[in-house]
C-alpha cells in the first residue's frame, strides 16, 4: 500500500531520534561521565572506571529502558482511550484511571495499618503493588465505561473523570490521615512518579505487562479504526462491539495500571503524545498511529527524564512535575488550535 511508503520517512526519523535520546539519556546524570567512556561501557569494552560502569549498567540503562517502556505504554493507553471514548481529551490521567491506581497503591501501602494483620509489611512487594494499582485502575476504568455509555456528552465524561479523581483523592487523604509517617512518605514518593529505581526484574515484569497490552491493542487495530466512525457504524461494519470494547479496556487498564504501579501516576504523557503524533503523521489509521505513538512516547519520556535528572547536579526532580510542565501547555496549545484537536 502506497500509504505505508508515505509514512516510512517519519518513522525512520523518529527511530533515529529515539536512539539519540536514548544515548543522551544514559550519558547524562548526576555523576558526570565522559561521553566516550559511556559509549565504551555500553559496547562492553574495558572501562576506565569501575564505579562508572556500575552506574551505567545498574542505574542509567535500566532507567532509560524504564522511560521507554513507560512512555510507550502510557501513550498507547492514551490513544486507545481517545478512540474508545471518541474524545480527544481522554487519557489515563484525565479520566481518573491513574487516580484509581493511586487508590489501589494507597490502600496497599497505607491501609495495611488500618486493616490490621491481614497484610503484613513484608507483603508489600512489587507484585502486590502492581496488582493493587491495576485493580484500582480497572475499577475506575469500568466505572467510567459504564458512565460513558449513559452520557454522550464529551465534556460530561471528562467532568465525571475528574470527579472520580476527586473521590479517590479524598479516600487517599483519609488513608494518609490515619497512617504513620513512614508509610505516608513511602506513598508520597510513589506518587511523585519515578522511572528510576527499577530493578532488572521489575523491568522485566513491566515489559511483559506492556507487551501483552500492546499485543492486544495490535489485535484490536481493525475495530479501533472502525470506532472512528462511531459505534453504530462500527457495528454495521461487522465489529463485535462488546468484545472489542472489552479487549480495548483490558489493554488500556493493563498499560495504564501496570505502569502506574511501577512508576507512579505520570501525568499528561498519555493525553499529549497521541495528539503530537497526529501532527506528524496526519492520519487516523491505527496501523500507522499505534507504532508511531509507541516511539514518540518513548522519545518524550526519555527527554522528560533527562531534564528531571538535572545533569551534573545531585538532585532529581519528580518526573511528574516535568511531564506536567511540558504536557499541560501542549494540551492548551492544541485546544487553542481547535481543528487539530479533532482526533
Amino acid at each position: 500500500m502506497n500509504d505505508h511508503k508515505k509514512h516510512k520517512a517519519p518513522f525512520i526519523v523518529l527511530g533515529i531520534i529515539l536512539l539519540l535520546c536514548f544515548v543522551i539519556n544514559i550519558s547524562l546524570g548526576s555523576v558526570s561521565i565522559p561521553f566516550t567512556d559511556t559509549m565504551k561501557i555500553i559496547f562492553g569494552t574495558e572501562a576506565t572506571n569501575n564505579s562508572w560502569q556500575y552506574i551505567i549498567w545498574n542505574y542509567r540503562v535500566p532507567k532509560a529502558f524504564a522511560a521507554i517502556l513507560i512512555g510507550s505504554g502510557l501513550s498507547l493507553s492514551g490513544l486507545l482511550m481517545q478512540t474508545l471514548f471518541r474524545n480527544p481529551l481522554a487519557g489515563p490521567f484525565v479520566l481518573g484511571i491513574s487516580s484509581g491506581a493511586s487508590l489501589g497503591a494507597a490502600i496497599l501501602i497505607m491501609g495495611s495499618s488500618l486493616l490490621g494483620s491481614l497484610f503484613s509489611l513484608s507483603f508489600i512487594n512489587d507484585i502486590s503493588l502492581a496488582i493493587a494499582s491495576s485493580i484500582g485502575s480497572f475499577l475506575v476504568l469500568f466505572a467510567v465505561v459504564i458512565v460513558a455509555a449513559r452520557v454522550k456528552d464529551t465534556m460530561a465524561l471528562l467532568i465525571i473523570g475528574l470527579m472520580f479523581g476527586s473521590i479517590t483523592g479524598a479516600l487517599v487523604s483519609v488513608l494518609s490521615y490515619f497512617t504513620n509517617a513512614e508509610k505516608l512518605q513511602q506513598y508520597i514518593y510513589w506518587s511523585f512518579g519515578s522511572v528510576g529505581n527499577l530493578t532488572w526484574n521489575q523491568l522485566l515484569m513491566l515489559l511483559i505487562i506492556i507487551f501483552v497490552g500492546t499485543l492486544i491493542s495490535i489485535l484490536c487495530i481493525k475495530p479501533l479504526n472502525a470506532f472512528l466512525l462511531g459505534e453504530n457504524y462500527a457495528r454495521s461494519l461487522g465489529v463485535n462491539l462488546k468484545n472489542s470494547r472489552f479487549f480495548i479496556i483490558i489493554a488500556t487498564g493493563l498499560l495504564a495500571g501496570g505502569i502506574t504501579a511501577f512508576a507512579g501516576p505520570i501525568a499528561f504523557i498519555g493525553l499529549a503524545v497521541p495528539h503530537l503524533t497526529r501532527q506528524i503523521f496526519n492520519t487516523t489509521d491505527h496501523r500507522i498511529l499505534l507504532p508511531a505513538v509507541l516511539i514518540y512516547g518513548a522519545i518524550l519520556m526519555l527527554l522528560c527524564d533527562t531534564i528531571a535528572q538535572m545533569p551534573n547536579s545531585s538532585s532529581v526532580l519528580p518526573i511528574n512535575a516535568i511531564t506536567s510542565i511540558i504536557g499541560a501547555p501542549v494540551v492548551i496549545w492544541l485546544l487553542l488550535r481547535k481543528r487539530k484537536m479533532i482526533f
Binding site: F227, L228, L229, G230, N232, T284, I342, F343
Partner: peptide
C-alpha cells in the same frame, strides 16, 4: 445513518 461520524479527522 443521520448521526455524525465520530472522527472528522478521517
Amino acid at each position: 445513518l443521520t448521526e455524525p461520524i465520530a472522527s472528522k479527522n478521517l
